[in-house]
Computed example of a mutant assay.
Amino acid sequence: MDPAFERHCSELVARERSGHTAVVLDSLLYVWGGYMSIADEEVFIPSDEIWVYDLEGGIWQVFHMSGEVPPSMSGTCGSSLGGNMYIFGGCDDGGQTNQMFCVDLTDGRYVWKKIIPLCGSAPSHRDKLSCWVYNGKLIYFGGYGHKVLADITSRSRNFIPDETSWVDDLFWGWNNEVHVFDPVKGSWAEPQTHGRPPAPRAAHAGATLGRRGYVCGGRVMETRTNDLHSLDLESWTWTEIVPSSAAPVGRSWHSVTAVSESTMFLFGGLSVDCRPMSDGWLFDVETKKWREFEHPYQDKPRLWHTACGGRDSDVVVFGGSCDYILLVDTGHCNDALVFQMQPHPLFRICEDYIAKNVRTLERLRKQLPLLPPKLLKALQRRISFYRPSKKQSNN
């Protein structure tokens, strides 16, 4: 790699932000939207740009987006399905929205398309909701938004009004609704669920393991909870999970990520007493036990960040805030924290050893040209990650 280009790449880093969307596809982290603070003002990140981080090479790039570009916003719910990134809901300058957009991440063009449903009705306006991806469908749960009074009285068990926020017959509040979008049919549906659902909430965390979608914590009125629920995505039956061990404290604006067929990883958030958190926990859905997870980022609290599953069950956390953003909204971050959740395969251990030491071991440098072209290209990409000029530290 050209040294001048290498220095330029090492200095290009995505804007700091919170309330954004991020997905991982083919060892690339795609980051869109959210907001940052400039001179004590909250400013949305431009919606016509997408930042791409090469998790193997450690290089950021930014691309212009075209097409039916969504408004700049935060709190939208993003997910990856079939090479596309879908976003639904969120909050823009006009308040919460119920629009849906998608962009193909595989063709390098980054053209937005607005989704107009062919049948069914989109959920009401909301943000800070979650999504499970299952069987080719996008399944949304909860969030904070507004409804008209007639809808609240007829669906009172699914919506808790925020008594401090209402205008005429329009009320804001928390919901526990389940809505399903089928991208193939272009249809919305609201399945009839069974069992006792979680209380309405927003700023919670969700993950999909097998045929179940999990909901963890979140804000319910003035309370931040630590409860755990699962929804069978075939029978639509809710189950509350009572842990057989001590559980993390209640929180909102945290993340939960599936790291195996039976385990999910919780990180960060805002605690019941409004402290930004940096703790990590593993939950085993078979034993129903929480276990605190030691990691090297105890000094990096995060809330309203994103967390994505990466290579070899790594979890990639990007952005978020290290402050209680409702009081001091200046602590937005732009670093990528990579959590190793299990021992890496031997090939990756060897690859990283070479990448870390090739600059100091002459024998390795001489042997590199003897490698097969495909392997050499992969190694050169990884060597770039450990380049000495790199200013941002990523594990």
Rank of each mutant, 00 (worst) to 15 (best):
N226L: 03
S27C: 09
A22L: 05
L55T: 12
V133F: 07
T239P: 02
H305R: 05
A205K: 05
T306G: 08
H204V: 05
V259W: 06
D335S: 12
Y353T: 12
I50D: 02
C102E: 03
H146A: 04
G213K: 05
G217S: 08
G142D: 07
L129P: 00
A258H: 04
R251A: 10
I349L: 14
F88C: 04
E41S: 15
H8E: 09
R211K: 13
R17A: 13
T237S: 15
K390I: 07
I354S: 07
N334W: 08
V13G: 01
V220F: 10
S18R: 08
L209W: 02
D323M: 04
C131H: 00
D279T: 09
V242A: 12
V69M: 03
F283T: 01
V111E: 12
S37K: 10
E286M: 12
G95L: 07
S187F: 02
R382G: 02
V259E: 07
V111F: 03
R211S: 12
F339P: 04
T97N: 03
N334M: 06
D352Q: 14
R302D: 02
I116G: 00
P191H: 06
Y35C: 09
R348H: 09
D2F: 08
D26L: 04
I115Q: 04
W166S: 11
L12N: 11
C216F: 15
W112A: 00
G173P: 09
E41Y: 10
